[in-house]
Simulated assay, not measured.
Amino acid sequence: MKRILIPTDFSKYADQAIEAGAQIAKKNNAEIVLIHMLELPGQSNDAVTGETSIPAIMLFKQKADEILKSIKDRPYLKGIPITEVILLDNVYKGIATYANKNDIDLIVMGSHGSSGFEEIFIGTNTEKVVRLSNIPVLIIKQEVDQLDIKKIVFASDFSKEIKKPFLELLKFAKIFNAKLKLVMICTPNSFKSTTAAEKIMKEFVAEFDMPDYSMETYNDTNIEKGIINYANAKNADLIALCTHGRTALTHFFSGSISEDLVNHTSRPVVTFKI
């Protein structure tokens, strides 16, 4: 892991992501790219000839540049190579496009507690970054004094299409020397016997050089509650999910499970694209 992209809107939630990203960067001798998106009125048509004048755009850019430079001077970023980027673009498209074109290994984003996204991360922006980005996205939910990831819960249906992103998860777990807790959530609408679920999971992991790990099934009323309750029961440091590029989460994670999960858990969440 050499380059970590951290979008910032200068909110305290983005600052939490920067602190977490700094800890990961120090573990990997990685560079941090701080990116601020200037999404201005009239931009969807023409930012220059629309509602925002060129002097106003330059003023916004100058102020953003000053703040980014002040962020670089924070003590916890000392010794980490920092690149500052300001782009005039749609927030989620700009973040995903920059990450995909600039050899970014991880995107770290901040969000507001367990009650939704704030500032540039309101609503579906984070969901769309996850959906568009080919890069893993780590979502930080609260202030992190020490990002000590020792237990990672990975919830899945363990289908064939999960194999490629699962390899990325194994690399991520290796960075932290973390134990993987693999779980298949069984609900009334997607029930499997323990024997059937264990068979699927054992056949899945047999193809990989596995680190320290365990496998379990967990019963709950729905997938989202099952993941959250299982992660709470195991006191997990991180929840890992696989996402689909077209329709958020596929198969096991249908509908808006990813967005709901991120909104309703206080734990960090990392997503890997199928």
Rank of each mutant, 00 (worst) to 15 (best):
R246F: 08
Q43T: 11
V91P: 00
V108Y: 01
P136L: 03
Q146S: 15
Q16E: 06
Q43M: 15
V108W: 05
F208I: 10
E118V: 12
V48M: 13
L77F: 10
V205D: 07
L167K: 15
K61V: 00
S159P: 04
L38Q: 12
T247Y: 12
A155G: 05
A64I: 13
K181N: 14
L241M: 14
A22N: 03
A231Q: 13
T271I: 10
D89H: 15
I104V: 14
G245E: 10
H112T: 06
S159E: 10
L34D: 12
P41F: 06
N45R: 14
I120H: 13
P55S: 10
P7W: 05
I86Y: 09
G113M: 07
K174R: 15
A64N: 08
L5Y: 06
G245W: 03
K72Y: 06
L34N: 12
E66T: 03
S70L: 02
P55G: 10
Y13N: 04
I104P: 12
D260Y: 14
A14N: 11
F252H: 12
S159I: 01
K26M: 08
V269T: 08
N232C: 02
T194L: 09
I257V: 15
D157M: 02
E143N: 13
F253I: 11
F158H: 05
A22M: 11
C242D: 00
N177S: 11
K174N: 14
N235R: 06
A99E: 05
K2R: 09
L182W: 07
T124Q: 02
L261D: 02
A20V: 06
S114Q: 07
F176Q: 12
A47T: 13
K93Y: 12
G21L: 08
C242V: 13
Q146P: 00
T194P: 14
Y213V: 07
L87F: 09
K171C: 01
I80G: 05
F172K: 02
A47Y: 08
T271S: 14
R131W: 04
I67P: 02
F117D: 11
S266P: 00
T217W: 08
K179L: 02
H264I: 01
T194M: 10
V153N: 09
A99T: 00
E119H: 09
S115Q: 09
A197P: 04
I82E: 09
A99W: 01
L169D: 08
I67L: 14
S214W: 05
A14V: 10
Q16M: 08
N125I: 00
K171W: 00
D145T: 11
V137N: 04
S214H: 04
T195C: 04
D103K: 08
G94M: 00
Q23A: 13
I95V: 07
M184E: 14
S254I: 14
I175N: 11
T243P: 11
L147C: 05
S159T: 15
S214M: 03
N29K: 10
P188H: 05
K181T: 12
K171F: 06
L132I: 07
E19S: 11
